[in-house]
């Protein structure tokens, strides 16, 4: 059994189960006797049925072929994913400048840069330039932080 679980099959399984769950909500929630044109779930039901069917085929193919699994992604990708998610969520809350400086530092470290001065120069220089470009030149203000409204 364990041999069947490779990364490809896992991705296919997740897609298949997501499709099933969504299809179930599309079938369970609707009022039955609506005309297709006025039934909000009419179109999604067709699409989700296709989704489930194709995902099942992919799942079968993945288990059947049993490809050699890829080398697992390095730890640094996990850190980068979290950094990107936090950057996106905090961008509008803490403002452009603070989040961008923090993201630059994390991203550059994760991507193997070790020269502290270069990292600092880029992490502060790039956001400053963008801030001047958008806020002053183009007059399209980037989100400001709640602490210092001018940043």
């Amino acid at each position: 059994m364990l041999a069947l679980i490779n990364e490809r099959a896992l991705v296919a399984l997740v897609l298949f189960l997501t499709g099933i769950a969504l299809l179930w909500t599309a079938i369970a929630g609707g009022t039955p006797d609506l005309q297709p044109a006025f039934d909000p779930r009419f179109f999604p039901r067709i699409v989700l049925t296709l989704w489930v069917a194709i995902a099942a085929m992919e799942l079968a193919a993945a288990v059947w072929r049993r490809e050699p699994s890829l080398e697992p992604a390095a730890w640094r990708i996990g850190v980068l994913v979290i950094a990107v998610l936090l950057y996106a969520v905090l961008f509008t809350r803490l403002g452009f400048f603070i989040t961008s400086v923090a993201f630059c530092i994390v991203s550059l470290l994760v991507l193997g840069q070790r020269h502290i001065l270069t990292i600092a120069a880029f992490a502060i220089g790039a956001p400053t330039m963008l801030l001047i470009l958008f806020n002053r030149v183009l007059k399209m203000p980037l989100p400001a932080s709640p602490f210092f409204w001018w940043l």
């Binding site: 950057y87 961008f91 509008t92 993201f103 550059l108 840069q113 790039a126």
Partner: peptide, 17 residues
């Protein structure tokens, strides 16, 4: 590459914003 990739990520966020 590290700097270019970091810059791309920032542009993605700004562009979508």
């Amino acid at each position: 590459e590290a700097f270019l990739m970091t810059a791309i990520a920032i542009f993605c966020v700004i562009g979508v914003y």
